[in-house]
Every structure is written in C-alpha cells, then in structure tokens.
Write a protein that binds this DNA or RNA. Structure first.
Lengths: 219, 219
DNA sequence: ATTTTTTTGTACCATTTCGCAAAAAATTCC
DNA sequence: GGAATTTTTTGCGAAATGGTACAAAAAAAT
C-alpha cells in the first residue's frame, strides 16, 4: 500500500526545489502514480479498471487519487496525455534525426513495437488505437485527443517522406501524404496485431514488407 | 420490454418448421436478440455493457438471456461470432466475384466502411479491431477468434492479388502476400479512424491512396 | 507549544453488477 | 381436463462500483 520507502522524497532535479509545501507531505510521487495508472488503463481499458485497482496499483487510496487527479475520467485523460507525451519523446529523436529513409522507418517501427509489446501480463498494444479510440465515440474530449494523435503521426511521416523525396531517395512522382497514411496504417495494424499476441517476428515481417512497398524494394 | 407484438412468431423460411417445441413458447427470436446484443457490445465494449443493458435491448430479462446464451462472456463470444459471420457474408460475394482488381478493392472497402460507419449513436468501428482485440490479451478463446479473423482477411486479399497477378493486372514481381497485409492494414486504419468519427470522405481518400500505391497509379 | 494547512486512512453511502432460485405462465402430450 | 415440459417473471442477495465525509496524522508557520 506504500509507494516508496525512501523517506525524503528526493527533489527532482528539474523541479527547482519548490518553496517548501506546507501540510503533511505526500506519500506518493504524482509522476510514478500516473505511470501506474496508465499501465492499468492500457491493460484493461477504461470500464474494466476500477478505482480499487487504481488505488492498489498507485499505492494511493481513493480520496488521494481523487484529490490528485480528479475522477476516473479525468485520471484516464491524464494517463492518456502522459502516454502521448512519452511516445512523443521516444519518437522525437528519430523523427528529427535525418537518416536514410529506410533506416529511419525501421527505427520508428522498432520503437513502436517496443511500446506495443511491453507489459508484464501480455502486450499492451497502443493506447490510442485500443483503448482511447473506443472511448472516442462517446467522449468529445478524448475524441479530440485521438484525432490529434492520428494527425500528428500522419504529419510526422509525411515530413519524413517529403524530405526523402528532396534528397532523391524517392521518385518525385511519389505522393508523400499518401505514403504517410500507409505508414500510419502499418503502425495501426501492428498495434492491433500485437494486442492479439502476434509474435514480434511476424510483426517485423509485416513492417519490412510495408517499407519495401512504400519506398521501393531497391532501397 | 417486449421484443415483438406479432403474436405468431412467423417461422423463418430457412428454419424448416421444427417439430413443434413442447413447453411455453419463446417470447423472443434468438437471432434478433443476438443482433441487439451485438449492437450493444460494439457500441460500448465488453466491460461497459451490463446485463441490464443487454436485457433491455434484447427484450429478454436476465434469466432468459442467461438460459439462451450463457453468461456474459459466452454471449459476447456468440455476438462476435455472429459479427464475423455477417461480415463474411457481406464480403463473400465481392471476394468471389472476379472483377478487375481496382474495382474489387474499391467494393471491398466500400462495404467495410458501411459496416464501420453504421450505428445510430455514432460509428461503431470494427468489432475485431476495437472490442475483441482488447479482450484478446486476457482471453485465449477470443484471441483465437481474432487471430483467425486477421488470417482470414489477409488470405482473402492475398487471393485477390494473386489472381490479379495471373491476369496480368499486376507485375509478376509484386509480392501478393505483402500487398495483402497492406490491404489489411488499410482496413484496420479506416476501422480505427472511423471510430474516432473521421468523416467518410477522408476515409475514402485514404482508401484511394492506398489502392493507388498497391496496384500502381496506372490502373 | 499551539495553530494552520495539507494529506492520509477509515468508513460509509447509494447504485449497479452478475448470477440464481423459486414461482407463475403458456404450451403440448396423454 | 390434467400432467409434463419449457419459458418467463419476479425478486433476492452477495459483491463490487464510483464517489465522499470526516477524523487522525504530519508537516510548516506562528
């Protein structure tokens, strides 16, 4: 029920020693708690994750949870936001780093697979694709985030392809936007298949085939 | 609370007048009840759909539901089976009918979009992709069905591409299996995006672009 | 040492959930 | 008509759910 034993909650380096909070000190670190909540939501989805589960996983009791993150829906949204931030960080370097297009795509998909296949009790898939998209029909806020996620991915891929085109790695006749959507589709298909426990080897084969079609087998 | 008012449950034509059931007659038709259950599961997912909801939607009270279909999980599985059967029927003709490859793909995706975008309270997406895949991590039976679904789709597309290749619509160098996986990926991406209420026009644009890449813009 | 502030821990509430048992109803068979 | 059979109906009950009230605890401020 306790999140950590280290008595003094070591002040984060990037959190510039805030001016000494006043009351009883927190028994948890919001960041790690949110991470645990995210894990649960990814594993079981929104409805199947109870506050008790969340409470147990985060080491916070329900009132603390409520006080820190709001009700279940808010916690879900904050978890999702966290997931996207993490994914952005993991992908950021690669999308920025200007490798040859094939290498670049390979790295991107490798990172994606790492994310989708992680999880102690089975692969967790992609939050956006699996859990969030489900809620998106009914909840406008979540829907907005999901749509934003799709657009962001499409755009990032499009930038890659456009750059490759400028560098002469792709024929000028290629349509970067279309290729980007195919690249996203490939992300989506491996995310879904991962959730059904398709082994990594097979997913990598799918990725490889898709890359060949997108940039030409020559590469 | 009543499923139908027509007193005599008009015997289905294809159900060859079974030898007069003995006890109190059913107040529902299993087929339509299962359809209603399917609708609910597609809309809300497994966990968020309660037996009361199902009871209300099917017009059967809980014990009847239980007697007819077993517990919630069994009902879910039977609903999913029904969904796949329906989808197979809807797709069957097209996959069988030997049109030019482009026309064929266009039809397939059109039918898929019809399925994914239907639903009175928002598009319901694809059962396999949205709801079933979520449960697949934990439930081996559901996982098996989902994997079967993926394989079936991949295979059906592969047959199409192979045939097109034989008819000379595709270069001999093309890899039918890889193209099939891309075609499936496109199915998956539009299923997911549909759930987030991306308008049909955009989804059709994605499909169009994907087809162009798969069979060459010439077609 | 006392007060203030903040968080925790316990307990509680109203509702919903799934599943079942027992009784009532509707039909066929004798 | 009465017995047998099958289904519906009512309603129970134990557990779980999301959310909250309130006192105790722990720290800083006075």
């Amino acid at each position: 029920m306790v999140q950590k034993n280290k008595k003094p909650p070591v002040p984060r380096i990037d959190a510039p020693v805030l001016p000494k909070r006043r009351g009883r000190p927190r028994a948890y670190e919001p960041d790690v708690a949110l991470g645990k909540a995210l894990d649960l939501f990814r594993k079981d989805g929104f409805a199947a994750t109870s506050l008790d589960d969340l409470s147990a996983a985060t080491g916070m009791n329900r009132p603390s949870l409520y006080g820190a993150f709001g009700d279940k829906r808010e916690l879900f949204i904050k978890s999702y936001r966290r997931y996207r931030d993490d994914a952005r960080v993991a992908m950021g370097d690669i999308f920025r780093n200007e490798l040859p297009i094939r290498k670049r795509l390979e790295r991107i998909y490798a990172v994606a697979l790492d994310i989708y296949l992680s999880g102690e009790s089975g692969p967790r898939g992609c939050f956006t694709v699996m859990t969030a998209a489900s809620e998106a029909v009914h909840d406008p806020d979540i829907r907005a985030m999901v749509l934003e996620g799709f657009a962001e991915l499409d755009k990032a891929f499009a930038v890659c392809f456009r750059l490759a085109q400028e560098k002469g790695e792709l024929p000028a006749s290629a349509d970067a936007a279309v290729l980007a959507q195919l690249a996203s589709a490939t992300i989506h298909t491996i995310a879904i298949r991962a959730r059904a426990q398709v082994p990594r080897k097979e997913l990598e084969a799918i990725v490889n085939g898709a890359i060949n079609v997108m940039i030409g087998t020559a590469g």
